[in-house]
Amino acid sequence: MTPNETAPPDTAYADAATRLLRGRPATRDALLPLLHALQDEFGYIADAMIPVVAAALNLSRADVHGVVTFYHDFRRAPAGAHLVRLCRAESCQARGAATIERIATQRLGVTMGATSADGRVTVEPVYCLGLCATGPNALVDGRPVSRLDAAKLERIAAEVLA
């Protein structure tokens, strides 16, 4: 009920928000760029960032929370050390994505959308990387890989689980 009297904002996040907003008016349309930048820096959108971002852009916590939870990109907990995003859209399905998904999750020891218990790898679905003639496709730590097959998956697993 007293928005300006809540606990003091987390200073590390507040400092980062100030730095990341530099050179950009602190208006609402800076919200997505700021969230992206914070996630790039800290790996995820922590609960404690929400009041910080709200204060930085003069929004309510509800405003920020609504946006953070709307977009699939913003994660609320850190991902694993490695991130494997497997495409499961139609064009990749037409080229055997379901089989690849089964092999990949089995080999990496983690279910789709989850992070392995040791925190080493997160496997997530992605709906289209725009590589639709050469699927099945993946983004492995941001690197695109096309024509995924068992051999390529094995190389990826070796790299990720090393």
Partner: peptide, 24 residues
């Protein structure tokens, strides 16, 4: 401006809301 994993933002009005910093 970079999207954030919401297919529906390809719809033009959702895209505008997204640029404005809102839910798409």
């Amino acid at each position: 401006r970079v999207g954030a994993g919401a297919y529906v933002c390809g719809e033009e009005t959702a895209l505008l809301d997204s640029i404005e910093g809102k839910r798409g």
